[in-house]
Amino acid sequence: MSNEAPAAGDGRRSQRALIALLVTVAAVVIVALIAVLTRGGPAQYAEGSPEGVVQRYVQAVTDGDRQTALALLTPTIAEECQRLEPSGEDYRVTLTGASEEGDSARVDVMVTTYYDPGLLGSGEFQQQETFELTRVDGAWRLETTPWMFAVCMGATL
């Protein structure tokens, strides 16, 4: 009898802990769903800023708009461009830092790549990448891009 009482107490405690954990999971899922469903689209950066140039370039590459993408590269690279097809994966690009120094600028991003689900669910991986820009006739133009957004061989890091 003396052993049964603590065992029953342990059982009740485990039951309560289990219910609390399941409620927490439900709360996390509901809050996450609300956050996802109520968020807006990506912020729009000023067209003249390095971040804005990177944003327009990434959009053009993923839309398959090669002309716009080429127009955002430095003229030297655009003229000597050897065509390179984008990889075709899905990406999310998040800004992690931007800096300017004279006529040079760099935009640091974190690229999340989504690939076909393999064993045990969805697949994604993240990597830090950098876009390097230079000022040409007062406008920022891309000098190097991460490999997954390259449209010309010369523009790849």
Binding site: V25, V28, V29, V31, A32, L33, A35, V36, R39, P42, A43, Y45, E51, V54, Q55, V58, Q59, T62, D90, Y91, R92, V93, T94, L95, V109, Y114, P117, L120, G121, S122, E124
Partner: peptide, 29 residues
């Protein structure tokens, strides 16, 4: 994986996203 995908998606509202090429975020979930 399902919770991670959902929470990561929710956290994108708190970070500066430059671009997102996916058509449906919920498919991986």
């Amino acid at each position: 994986t399902a919770i991670a995908a959902l929470v990561s998606e929710a956290l994108t509202g708190f970070v500066p996203v430059i671009g997102d090429t996916r058509s449906a975020w919920f498919v991986p979930v």
